Computed example of a mutant assay.
Amino acid sequence: MDDLCTTVWELRETQVAVYLGNYTDYLAKKTAAESHQQARYDQFAAEKKRLKKNDSKTAATCRSRYGGSQKQTRHIRNSR
């Protein structure tokens, strides 16, 4: 296929991605793009987990300091 392809058009749902080069180039670029996307997702998931953990600690601190119930704390958190 490398001898036949100079451009690869990939259809993915409603998106079209154009890769210049032969089929081997396409595979390398696609693999690199998928790795980059996975790294971005992993970073997002780690940040989300960190923020959720921090939010739980903040809610517990508010309850202990101000004597509020969990229901009151949830109401405060949801109104933000």
Rank of each mutant, 00 (worst) to 15 (best):
A59V: 12
Q15H: 07
A45G: 03
R80P: 01
E13I: 09
D3Y: 15
Q37C: 10
Q37M: 07
Y23F: 06
S79Q: 05
S79H: 09
R12F: 10
A32D: 04
R80H: 12
D42V: 01
T7K: 11
D2E: 05
E10G: 07
A45H: 08
A45E: 04
C62Q: 04
M1N: 12
G21P: 02
H36T: 01
A60C: 12
R50E: 10
L4V: 15
Q43S: 06
K52H: 13
A45C: 03
Y23H: 07
R50M: 07
T58D: 03
T7G: 09
K48A: 09
M1Y: 13
V8W: 00
A33I: 03
S35Q: 06
A33E: 00
S56C: 14
A45R: 03
R40Q: 02
S56V: 14
T14K: 14
G68K: 06
L4F: 15
N54Y: 09
Y26D: 02
L20K: 15
K57N: 13
K53I: 09
A60T: 07
T61F: 13
S35E: 04
L20S: 15
E13T: 12
A33G: 02
Y66L: 11
K52M: 10
A39S: 09
D42G: 00
S79C: 06
K57T: 11
T31V: 01
Q70Y: 12
T58S: 08
A60M: 05
T58P: 00
A46V: 08
K57P: 02
R80W: 11
E47L: 04
S56G: 15
K30N: 07
M1G: 14
S79D: 07
Y41F: 05
M1A: 14
L51V: 07
C62V: 10
A59R: 00
H36N: 03
T58F: 02
Q72N: 11
K53W: 08
Q38E: 08
A17T: 14
K52R: 13
R77G: 06
T24P: 01
K49I: 04
D55W: 09
Q70T: 13
E13Q: 09
R40H: 01
R74D: 12
L51C: 12
S69L: 04
Y26N: 01
Y41P: 00
W9P: 00
T7Y: 13
